[in-house]
Design a protein around this nucleic acid. Structure first.
Length: 150
DNA sequence: GCCAACGTTGGC
DNA sequence: GCCAACGTTGGC
């Protein structure tokens, strides 16, 4: 089983939204590196941190699990979607989504600021300069350590 | 709202 | 294949 960290803007889709709907397609990924990780490395049963980005207190806010492995992201074909990609063809989809399931919301946000301050997490892509991955792998050691901070 | 850092696009 | 211009991400 692998571990992940997945970013979403709470104004668009936050942990409370996931808690409400329980299962949700993680769509709108438009980065090839992330797509490839989702396709090649992300498996049903994997666990992921839910991270709130682009908000007042960015940080990890809860846990979820992967319940459906990569499949063509429907939003790429939806002309009305903000994620519509005119260059993608149904017989050759360019972008992929997975389905995630709500597991747990933390009592408090575990702020990015705090993650950055821990030397044990120095290798986490999230805290590295210039990193732009919206989905990233978390090692078992990092995963365990982060859980001790909650 | 600013802007650093990065990815993508497209002319050549 | 290079690289300038542009767009996006996301912290601050």
């Amino acid at each position: 089983m692998a571990y992940w960290l997945m970013k979403s803007e709470p104004d668009v889709f936050g942990i409370d939204d996931l808690k409400k709907v329980r299962v949700e397609p993680w769509d709108g990924v438009r980065n090839y590196q992330v797509r490839n990780m989702m396709r090649d490395d992300m498996r049903k049963g994997d666990l992921a941190f839910f991270y709130h980005s682009n908000c007042k207190t960015p940080g990890i806010v809860g846990l979820m699990s992967i319940v459906k492995e990569a499949y063509p992201d429907p939003t790429q074909f939806d002309r009305r979607s903000r994620y519509f990609d005119p260059k993608s063809k149904p017989d050759e989809p360019r972008w992929l989504a997975v389905d995630v399931r709500y597991k747990r919301k933390f009592a408090e946000v575990l702020p990015l600021q705090e993650l950055k301050a821990r030397r044990q997490l120095a290798e986490l892509p999230l805290v590295q300069r210039g990193n732009r991955l919206s989905v990233m792998p978390v090692t078992p050691a990092q995963w365990e350590y982060i859980l001790t901070l909650v």
